[in-house]
Simulated scan of single mutants.
Amino acid sequence: MIHVNLARGFRGGERQTILLIQALAGADGIERQTLVCKPSSPLRDELAGTPDLKFTNARHQLAGHWHAGKADVVHAHEAKAVHWAWLHRKLFQTPYIITRRVDTPIKPKLSNKAFYRNAHYCVAISSAIAQEISTLTFQKIPIIPSAFTPVSPNPNVVKELRDGYSERFIVGHVGALVDRHKGQRVLLEAARQFQVTRPEVLFVFFGRGEDEQILRQESASLSNVLWMGFKPNIGDYLPMLDLFAFPSRNEGLGSVLLDVMNAKVPIIASDVGGIPDIVKHKKTGILVPPNNSEKLVEGLEALINNEQLRSTLSINAFKQLERFSPDAMMEAYLFLYRTT
């Protein structure tokens, strides 16, 4: 079993790679696993000590093939890994599986069609991504959603933060600070309006990314905006929130929403990409149109003014988390591996 993830950094896809490899360790039929990744990949530290796991260096798609050797199946976890898996099949006749986690359009190039049509399975983490993949291949697209592991928050962190803002209603956001993807400017526009109409509402942003500096500059005049930076232990911070806002412009699934649900924090999010696969409107959260600050403001106002609705949504959301466990994800992939 060979996993391939050639990403440089660490985002949701890398977290899911880790959860799957850990869940597969010791599973019936999985004798050993190999992870092909960059020498500097954060995955190495995160997976150190995982039983029967070997690492193979690959700085690019052409590297690491001979060292990884033959296997029963190759699993490509991100875009560059798809190229690697296709080439490995040419070299060793090894079947491969692709998991696509983003809903951005796939360019209809001949090479992309070859990569996807030669895969034994193309897996999507949401229905929106399955629809995108279907433009390149004629096969049925299995949908296997992302998983998460419940984390018990540090009560001292929660208490310290809440004590510091005891008079404020806190609306939080977690995500890479890349506005074209996560839509932080939409939430900042809402904050701009609330600074006048509801000054008790505090907007707290967690994360880092290429737009961090410009977003900080654009919000410098907003006294109701707080930038917290990246927190590896985000589960310690989510319980401080009264409400979670996720105004993404596009989203493969939005797996951080699962952590928010586990913290029993109500959610308002964009009706885009794979988000509706997790957030059911008026049942497990509130959905609003993407790129629309006015509708976001309306939704925020409705939730802030209705404590009972916030409670109902968060309880319903928490109840659905069992289907997003690492074991559920692992079993779904095991079925695909065994039928490849």
Rank of each mutant, 00 (worst) to 15 (best):
R168E: 08
M228S: 12
A71F: 05
G29D: 10
P266N: 07
G26L: 10
Y237C: 04
D163A: 09
I268W: 03
I170P: 01
N5F: 02
E322L: 00
L47H: 05
A130S: 11
P232V: 07
E78G: 01
A58M: 10
D327A: 13
F148K: 09
E46K: 11
P153M: 05
V256M: 07
A332R: 11
F206Q: 06
C37I: 08
L296S: 05
L258N: 01
S221I: 00
I18D: 04
P289A: 08
F335I: 11
T197Q: 11
D45Q: 13
G229P: 01
H120D: 08
V102R: 00
G64K: 06
Q193W: 00
G207Y: 04
L53R: 09
I2N: 02
I21F: 01
R117D: 13
M329I: 09
D28I: 05
G183T: 02
A328K: 13
E251D: 09
V123A: 07
F335E: 15
A245E: 01
H77W: 12
D259F: 00
H173F: 14
K280L: 13
G9W: 06
T137G: 02
S41F: 08
P142V: 10
P289M: 11
R44G: 09
L87E: 03
P142M: 11
L287M: 11
A48E: 14
I141C: 07
K140H: 13
E167G: 03
R44F: 07
D103C: 10
M330K: 14
A245L: 12
L313Q: 05
P150T: 02
I143S: 10
G175L: 06
E31T: 13
N262E: 10
